[in-house]
C-alpha cells in the first residue's frame, strides 16, 4: 500500500509541477488560464486520492468547492478577455493582439 501512496503522489505532484511550469512560462493569458484550470483539477484529484487512501471522508466537501472554483475562475477570465475584444478589420474573425502586445511588436519592429 505504501508503494501505491508513493506512486500516486509522485504522479500527481509531477503533473502539478508541470502545470506550474506552464503557468509561469505561458506566453499568453489564456495559456495561464488553461494551466490554472488543470492545476485546480489536479489539486482536487489529490485531495480525493488522499481521502480515498486514508479512508477519511472529511475532505470530500472541499472537493465540491474546488471544482466549482475552477469553473468560475476560468469562465470569468475568458469573459474578461472576451470583453477586451474590439471591432476588428477584415472578416471579423481575427480580433488582433492585445493593445500592449501590439505596442511591443511595433516597438520591436
Amino acid at each position: 500500500m505504501t508503494l501505491v501512496f508513493v506512486l500516486a503522489y509522485i504522479m500527481l505532484g509531477g503533473g502539478a509541477l508541470l502545470a506550474l511550469v506552464r503557468l509561469a512560462r505561458g506566453p499568453s493569458l489564456l495559456d495561464r488560464v488553461v494551466a490554472t484550470d488543470t492545476l485546480l483539477v489536479i489539486i482536487a484529484a489529490g485531495l480525493a486520492v488522499h481521502a480515498a487512501l486514508q479512508r477519511d471522508p472529511t475532505l470530500v466537501p472541499v472537493l465540491v468547492v474546488v471544482s466549482l472554483l475552477a469553473f468560475v475562475g476560468s469562465v470569468s477570465v475568458a469573459r474578461y478577455i472576451g470583453g477586451m475584444l474590439r471591432r476588428s478589420p477584415g472578416d471579423g474573425q481575427d480580433a488582433g493582439l492585445p493593445a500592449a502586445a501590439q505596442q511591443r511588436e511595433e516597438a520591436a519592429r
Binding site: 506512486l7 509531477g14 503533473g15 502539478a16 511550469v21 506552464r22 484529484a45
Partner: peptide, 14 residues
C-alpha cells in the same frame, strides 16, 4: 492510479 497517471500526462502535455 490511472487517474493520477492522467494528471501526470496532462502536465506533460501542457
Amino acid at each position: 492510479l490511472l487517474g493520477s497517471l492522467l494528471c501526470l500526462t496532462a502536465g506533460l502535455g501542457l
